[in-house]
Amino acid sequence: MNIEIKEIVFISIVLLTIAPCSVVAFSRNILYSAFALFFTFIGTSGLYFFLDADFLAIVQLAVYIGGVLVLLLFAILLTKNIDDIKKTNTISLRRSITAGITVLVLFFSLFFVFLSTGWTPLNGGAAYPNGTIHELGRLILSKYLLPFEIASLLLLAVLIGSLVLAGKTVRQRED
C-alpha cells in the first residue's frame, strides 16, 4: 500500500510535469505559456525528490523559478503591450506540422532505443538516504572546484555583458 501511494504520487508528479508542456507548446498566450512552464519546473523539482536529489530540487526551485522564470516574465512584460496578449504567442502552422512529424519520428526511435538498451547500474543504483548536500559540497569543492570557479567568472562576464547590452537600450530610450 505504501509503495502504491508512492507510485501514485510519482505518476501525478509526472503528469504535473508533462501536461503543462502542451500548454507551453500550443497556447496562444505567452503568459499562459510562462505559467505552464512554472508548473513544469515545479514538477521537475518534484521528480528530483524521487531521484534522491534534494539539493538539486532546491536549486531547481530557486534558480529556475526564482531566476529564469522571473527573467522570462520580465521579458514578456517589458516587450509587449498587455492588450494584445491573447495573440502573443502564435504558431507557424507549416513549421509546426513539419516539426510535429520530425519530433514524432525522434520520439519513437528514441523510445524504443531507450527501452531496448540495458542500462547497466554500475553500483546497483546509489541512494543517499541522508541527503546529498554533504556529498555534493565535497565534490564541488574538490574535484569540481575548477568548473565552480570558472562558472563564477562566466556569471561575472554575463553580468557585465548583459548590463551593457540592456543598459544601452534603456539609455537610448531615455534620450
Partner: peptide, 15 residues
C-alpha cells in the same frame, strides 16, 4: 548556465 543564458537572452531581447 541556463540562468546565465536567460540573462543574456533578456538583454538581447530588449535590444
Amino acid at each position: 548556465l541556463a540562468a546565465a543564458e536567460a540573462a543574456v537572452a533578456l538583454a538581447l531581447l530588449l535590444a
